[in-house]
């Protein structure tokens, strides 16, 4: 935690509430355990010992109710896109979406196919795009660090967890 810290004594410090809350939030990004294609293999690898995302407090949750971050790992077909939107709406606010790999970004290799959604941002708002086919574990780690940076900039108390990149603002901004 950097920024507004004043150390007054050996055992206490003074900071803003926002900074402390954001520091706690960014240190426990729980992501939703699901993968739509081969990028999920690389997502598993990111949890492995070399690029251990557990060390920044990022662990997988099997239910969307407990997850903060959705990592869309792989090709999204129209059939699956409806399920992804359902999972997204089941997640509690504030929620973040990381689009992993070319297929989730823009359709990638399969963008001329009849059954593949051309980018997951057609159906849900995306915070961070990680390019690659598939991205290396280091790249995914970088993406999660970017999510942490987004979290640290937010005024959590002022906005009560509401985010600008919300699905509502996507629909009603015109």
């Amino acid at each position: 935690m950097k920024g507004n810290i004043i150390i007054t004594d050996n055992n206490c410090f003074v900071s803003t509430m926002d900074d402390v809350i954001n520091w706690m939030r960014k240190s426990s990004i729980w992501y939703l355990l699901f993968g739509t294609a081969c990028c999920a293999i690389e997502l598993m690898q990111t949890g492995g010992p070399r690029t251990d995302i557990d060390r920044i407090g990022s662990v997988f949750r099997s239910t969307p109710r407990q997850a903060d971050l959705m990592i869309v790992a792989g090709t999204v077909t129209y059939k699956m896109a409806e399920r992804i939107v359902l999972l997204y709406h089941q997640m509690a606010e504030p929620k973040y979406v990381l689009s992993m790999g070319s297929c989730a970004n823009c359709g990638g290799l399969f963008q001329n196919s009849y059954s593949v959604l051309k980018g997951v941002d057609k159906v849900i708002p995306v915070d961070v795009y990680v390019p690659g086919c598939p991205p290396r574990p280091e790249a995914l780690m970088e993406g999660i660090l970017k999510i942490q940076k987004i979290m640290m900039k937010e005024k959590f108390l002022k906005n009560h967890g509401e985010r600008k990149n919300d699905i509502k603002s996507l629909y009603y901004s015109g």
Partner: peptide, 26 residues
């Protein structure tokens, strides 16, 4: 999906511009 229109591996298949309110092109 069961409500799909047409048979996509036919040579004269034309992709509709929307499927369930999702855009089908970039």
């Amino acid at each position: 999906p069961d409500d799909w229109v047409g048979h996509p591996l036919r040579k004269d298949y034309e992709e509709p511009s929307f499927y369930h309110d999702m855009e089908t092109s970039r």
